[in-house]
Simulated scan of single mutants.
Amino acid sequence: MKMCFLIPSVASGGIEIYLLRFLRFLKDASEITVIVRNSDKGELYHEYLETGVHLKFLPLGYVNPLKIWRHYHYYKQQKFDVICDFNANFAGIPMFLGSILNIPKRISFYRQGTNHFQPGLIRNWVNRLMKWLVYRNATNILSNSQAALEFFFHDRSINDHRFEVLYNGFNFQDFEIVESKSEIRRELNIPVDSFVIGHIGRYDKAKNHEAILKVFQEIIREGLNCTLVLCGRDTEKLIPALKELGLEDKAIILGYRNDVPFVLKGLDCFLFPSITEGQPNALIEAMISGIPIVSSNIPSIKECVPKQVEKFLSTPSDTESHVRAILNIVNNVEDFKIPVEHLRMFESEVNFGLFKRILYGK
């Protein structure tokens, strides 16, 4: 069965990491093509190649006739049986092309909590058109959270069985790190005796790094001996802000790393005040690692944490509540423990197994 996935890039984003994990779960990806909708080689380029997929850089844009024609010609030439696009409403064009080419299975997989563009008259019109094309032409419309599905298709019919929520999948064995917390801190040049607050995520407005720095500044003022660890693509861009706040000596910028479970084990607390998420990979990884979390209370996050932890969530900009929660962790970490049974909802065998059955019709 010839299968095609479309992703925005091969940089270290949530979509790209999800698909990479799924390809590794499949083990044999020789009949799979991954189309990258831009022309840049990101951090995950070589890891994608190692899975055995055919990697094709084929920019699409939004309403570019020449690029649309190139996609049409490529799909027709390859004779795909399945096409799956992870670009939210902007899967509309591939879904439409797949329909007129009679590709049997056309899947649009929504993996973001809101639209990722600044609203405007033309952009809003194009967005509505793309969403309509998805709705009219997709055989399956998936999402990684109920919250995301409600945002994009709140008016869907309950009898429309194309809609389905598939949670992110994680191999729990990846989080069995043999090194001790002290050994990890020494390797990463983190003070061994410090209370370490960490965040993992690319430098992006949605990740709310501004709030992270404000919270950390207030924690320092409380007199706590602590260190801030920031891990993710382009996080070095935060260095000027750290210097301006006088926090550069208390913060460690790791940049992009492909050993997130290793980094997580070196933390005492995971701070995650995101403004928007589809389903938060990094937050779930922290929970699997057993790290106490302090997070925003947006719907997609509330959906993936246990009820007993919800009371510690607060609005993304509520610095005071985040500070109070971190101080509570210092004094009583047991209140923030995540039950192991709750985490089973994110096991790769279950969630990737469901996705595989949808793709292959088994």
Rank of each mutant, 00 (worst) to 15 (best):
K2W: 10
M3A: 11
F5E: 13
L6S: 06
V10T: 13
S12E: 11
I15P: 01
I17N: 15
Y18Q: 09
F22Q: 02
L23K: 03
F25L: 13
K27R: 13
A29T: 13
E31T: 08
T33V: 13
T33K: 07
V34P: 02
I35C: 03
V36N: 01
N38Q: 12
N38P: 07
S39I: 04
G42P: 03
L44Q: 06
L44M: 10
L44S: 06
Y45A: 08
H46L: 11
E47T: 05
Y48T: 02
Y48C: 06
Y48M: 04
T51E: 08
T51N: 14
G52R: 00
V53R: 00
V53A: 03
K56R: 09
N64E: 14
K67A: 12
W69R: 09
Y75M: 12
K76Y: 07
K79M: 04
F80K: 08
D81L: 02
V82A: 01
D85R: 04
N89M: 06
F90H: 10
F90A: 06
F90K: 00
M95T: 02
M95C: 01
F96N: 00
L101H: 09
I103F: 04
K105H: 08
F109E: 00
G113T: 06
T114P: 01
H116A: 13
F117Y: 13
Q118K: 15
G120R: 06
W132A: 10
V134L: 09
R136Q: 13
R136A: 10
N140P: 00
I141S: 00
L142I: 08
N144Q: 12
L149E: 12
S157G: 01
H161T: 14
R162C: 04
N171W: 02
V178S: 15
S180K: 06
S180F: 07
S182E: 15
R185N: 09
V192I: 15
F195V: 04
G201N: 03
D204Q: 10
A206S: 11
N208I: 06
H209W: 04
A211E: 14
L213T: 08
K214E: 15
K214R: 12
V215D: 03
V215Y: 03
G223N: 12
G223S: 13
N225A: 06
L228P: 05
L228Y: 10
G232V: 04
G232A: 08
L238N: 01
I239G: 02
P240T: 07
E244L: 09
E244P: 01
E244A: 13
L247E: 07
L247A: 05
E248L: 05
E248D: 15
A251F: 00
I252P: 04
I253Q: 10
L254R: 05
L254A: 04
Y256W: 14
Y256L: 07
F270Q: 00
Q279Y: 03
P280V: 03
L283T: 02
A286R: 02
S289F: 10
S296E: 06
N297T: 09
I298R: 01
C304D: 08
V305H: 01
K307E: 14
K311S: 11
F312H: 08
S317E: 14
S317D: 15
E320K: 15
S321P: 05
H322Y: 13
N331C: 07
F336R: 01
P339E: 11
V340Y: 10
H342W: 11
M345P: 02
E349M: 09
V350H: 14
V350W: 11
F352M: 08
L354F: 12
R357S: 15
R357L: 08
R357K: 11
Y360D: 13
G361S: 13
